[in-house]
Design a protein around this nucleic acid. Structure first.
Length: 821
RNA sequence: GCGGGUGUGGUGGAAUGGCAGACACAACAGACUUAAAAUCUGUCGGGUUUCCCGUGCCGGUUCGAGUCCGGCCACCCGCACCA
């Protein structure tokens, strides 16, 4: 037998071709097997894979392959989040149409994915930019419209000058564009919105269902983003005017402490209040200045609070007192009612404002430790009411309820909730997206494109580079149309949809295309969904995951699906970093997957990535670590290659009666148990691989004279357990062993519980919790026997001299602890 | 400020409340080799080494704490004038 060398490129090409030819990864729908939906976030076709991609796919592939071997029908596939601005910017710079560059990129990246040996069912691949996909994105848009969830409004929206398009709230990070990081400005535009706020409460409460399946921090981030707070709306009348104003407060218990009212400068009421006021021009100048300030300046906590008196007064609904009405930069126009009651004594922001502008500070809650005579900050804690007429003496919790009741009776207040979540702005003034399937008719208004006319195709020829104008506007043929309702001349909507819409439903399309009357096969979707394991980056903690949850709920309400949450379990994988920093071209610290795969092979890349860190943590790239992973695969290779004769011997039976054989058999079965749990329930692939390494080490040190059958069993098991992580090399080794079965279709091994039990167990003997001796006891030794012998041992006796035993703890199978005084 | 997370050898990281540092990387030594690489075998937290100390710091619970509880510190992430 001549020694064979491990050449990854040969092995990997061979098995990739083999799997493709035998349709190894086709989705099965065997009714006798349970369903398992394993999904990785689909990529934007940027051109080539980066290590972050390799990591997500490696994780997903281990899970998918493991589940297939464990007897599941597994849905595991790949698609392309293919609309988006980079392709369009590339077109502007290089004159290559997105239709061309996108599909080139897809072809290249698909090839890279195939080289990684990922077990996708390629027959179900999709791209969101293909008309037969975005037709249904448009269909869903219209469904939202019909259900009153898509609407157009003029609003001050986030505008990214660099991308020359608007952005949703979620897409503004610290006042900057999520994509290009340039500063976002406010612009008044008429735009399409999705009414996600109508689902705010359900998006919040259903998070409870995800507890356990989703990482706690993602749930918390969503909870904060939705930002529900309970409080009351209180109506104030305005002195000398018929108009009223309503404030939202979470602290109606402090209503007697109100000393002024303050509005957001944008509040519609402001113009009316200042009309005819002698300083009207000054107020107007103030408003213009605040509105010009950037989002960052405006919303930063340490920005100075500035305001101006409007000249108008409100009337306190309970005391009848006159309260000056101010406007200030610290009041947000689009939260609550855009109007706040100022309670300086009990709200820090109001306190700062009142101190600055010398407004009265009226304490109405006295904490247990009493009030300072000269308040230096707001008192926000619990206490008893003072200065509050008939509510004096009540605890503020009691007062809260009673005051709201009193206001309610007078018809000037009610309990209400407020959310921080805003409606989702979905229009984009860009070309490479799904056109919004609507028509603007001068006489009929906004009219949906009839369903049978979908998709509204993206026109091939447009002028990309006109700043501030949607490229679709530059194609007359596209814009000019007739109104479906009256037949008159009309204009098409020229904005496209936010690409997050495309990715909000792709997981449903994956399950099946259906008969062409609906966006997806609803029966298949109900079978496969919700996704059992969704692997992706934490950067989508809010954006994509919140939008997808919203879509699922709307589709549920429309009767298309029978579940309300799309992703039962979420695995957020950490970044791949080099020297502690995220790999990026600008930092010049990028390690390219192509180089690693061509030098060491995909199996090595996969094993290294899985082994180097638990999946949810950042992974520090290490060239030496990669070498180590490659060394390990070579070690496995040699282990098999050196034992071909015993591995091929068909009638070789295992006899684990000898001591060494018994130990190895135990190691084999303990490894099966550990790897099964690590992959299947803990998703800790690093410890799964280290367990296999231990088994391999045990096989290497197994004495030549010991039972060969037991060794063959151990080797075979190690190869099978390693298969999900390193599918190519293990398939080759399987074949080298003379096996004709398909390793990927093999049943996952089960372990023999009885093999895990040792006849003799080493106990640790502790004195006062410190290890002092080790003793071996038969597995069925009683507590009494263990205690007696432990105490009787020479070492223990020596240490016990002059002391007495106060207590003995025996943990069966583990240790004895003698408490000595 | 609020919410969440993380702190363990030179490094990545292991440890259902039960032997801290599995597995690997790096380093060192030996075997093989004319030599190197590869491979195999071994050493590898610290110290004043029969023993003692050691999981960010200080306390607590427990026979026993990296793990649970309380209070700090540092770093990371998210939100951040949300009334």
């Amino acid at each position: 037998m001549t020694e064979r060398r491990y050449v990854p490129s040969e092995v990997e090409t061979k098995w990739q071709q083999n799997w493709e030819a035998s349709n190894a990864h086709d989705t099965t729908t065997d009714s006798s097997k349970p369903y398992y939906y394993c999904m990785e976030q689909f990529p934007y076709p940027s051109g080539r894979l980066h290590m972050g991609h390799v990591r997500v796919y490696s994780i997903g592939d281990v899970v998918a392959r493991f589940k297939k071997m464990s007897g599941y029908n597994v849905l595991h596939l790949m698609g392309w989040d293919a609309f988006g601005m980079p392709a369009e910017n590339f077109a502007i710079q290089h004159g290559v149409h997105p239709n061309v560059s996108t599909f080139d990129n897809i072809a290249f990246m698909r090839n890279q994915q195939k080289q990684l040996g990922l077990s996708y069912d390629w027959s179900r691949e999709l791209a969101t930019c293909s008309p037969d996909y975005y037709k249904w994105t448009q269909w869903i848009f219209q469904l939202f419209y019909e259900r009153g969830l898509a609407y157009k409004k003029k609003a001050a929206v986030n505008w990214c000058p660099e991308c020359s398009t608007v952005l949703a709230n979620e897409q503004v990070i610290d006042g900057a564009c999520w994509r290009c990081d340039s500063e976002v400005v406010k612009k008044d535009l008429e735009q399409w919105f999705f009414k996600i706020t109508e689902y705010a409460d359900r998006l919040l409460t259903d998070l409870d269902q995800l507890q356990g399946g989703w990482p706690e921090n993602v749930i918390t981030m969503q909870r904060n983003w939705i930002g529900k707070s309970t409080g009351a709306e209180i109506t104030f009348s305005i002195a000398g005017q018929a108009e009223q104003l309503t404030v939202f407060t979470t602290r109606p218990d402090t209503v007697y402490g109100v000393s002024y009212i303050v509005l957001a400068p944008e509040n519609a009421l402001v113009q009316q209040l200042i009309a005819g006021y002698e300083h009207q021009a000054d107020v107007q100048a103030f408003i213009d200045k605040v509105r010009k300030a950037s989002e960052i300046e405006r919303t930063s906590t340490d920005a100075e609070k500035v305001g101006i008196f409007t000249g108008a007064y409100a009337v306190h609904p309970l005391t009848g007192e006159k309260l000056p009405i101010w406007i200030a930069n610290y009041v947000l126009p689009d939260y609550g009612t855009g109007c706040v009651m100022g309670v300086p004594a009990h709200d820090q922001r109001d306190f700062e404002f009142a101190t600055k502008y010398e407004l009265p500070i009226i304490p109405v809650i006295e904490p247990e430790e009493g009030l300072e005579s000269n308040q230096t900050s707001a008192v926000t804690g619990e206490g008893k009411l003072i200065n509050s007429a008939e509510f004096n003496g009540l605890s503020n919790a009691e007062a809260l309820t009673q005051i709201v009741e009193a206001l309610e009776q007078k018809g000037i207040g009610k309990t209400t909730t407020s959310f921080r979540l805003r409606d989702w702005l979905i229009s984009r003034q860009r070309y490479w997206g799904a056109p919004i399937p609507m028509i603007n008719c001068p006489s009929c208004g906004t009219v949906p494109v009839p369903k049978e006319q979908l998709p509204v195709l993206l026109p091939e020829h447009v002028d990309f580079g006109v700043k501030g104008k949607s490229p679709l506007e530059t194609n007359d043929e596209f814009v000019q149309t007739t109104c479906p309702s009256c037949g008159g001349a009309a204009r098409r909507e020229t904005d496209t949809m936010d690409t997050f819409i495309d990715s909000s439903w792709y997981y449903l399309r994956y399950t099946g295309e259906g008969d062409g009357t609906l966006p997806f096969d609803t029966e298949a979707a109900n079978n496969w969904m919700p996704v059992d394991k969704y692997v992706g980056g934490i950067e989508h903690a809010i954006l994509h995951l919140l939008y997808s949850r919203f879509f699922t709920k709307v589709l549920h309400d429309a009767g298309l699906v029978n579940f309300v949450e799309p992703f039962e379990s979420l695995l957020t994988q950490g970044m791949v970093v080099l020297n502690g920093a995220k790999m990026s071209k600008s930092k010049g610290n990028v390690v390219s997957p192509e180089d690693i795969v061509s030098k060491y092979g995909a199996d090595t890349a996969r094993v290294f990535i899985l082994f180097a860190a638990p999946p949810d943590r950042d992974l520090e790239w290490s060239d030496q670590g990669v070498e180590g992973a490659n060394r390990f695969l070579n070690r496995v290779w040699r282990m098999v290659d050196n034992h071909i004769p015993i591995l091929r011997k068909k009638n070789l039976t295992a006899d684990a009666s000898g001591e060494a054989a018994k130990k190895l058999r135990m190691a084999t079965h303990a490894t099966i148990k550990k790897v099964t749990e690590d992959i299947g329930t803990r998703y800790n692939f690093n410890t799964a691989i280290s367990a296999i390494m231990e088994l391999v080490n045990a096989i290497y040190t197994y004495p030549d004279a010991a039972d060969a059958g037991t060794k063959a069993e151990a080797i075979r098991t190690a190869v099978i357990l390693l298969h999900p992580a390193a599918p190519h090399v293990t398939s080759e080794l399987w074949e080298m062993m003379g096996e004709t079965s398909k390793l990927y279709a093999l049943e996952w091994p089960s372990y023999d519980e009885s093999a895990l039990v040792l006849d003799e167990i080493e106990y640790v003997v502790q004195i006062n919790g410190k290890v002092r001796e080790r003793l071996v006891f038969p597995k069925d030794a009683t507590k009494e026997e263990i205690e007696t012998q432990a105490v009787a041992s020479d070492k223990v006796q020596a240490l016990l001299e002059g002391k007495s035993i106060k207590k003995v703890i025996v943990v069966p199978g583990k240790l004895v602890n003698l408490v000595v005084g």
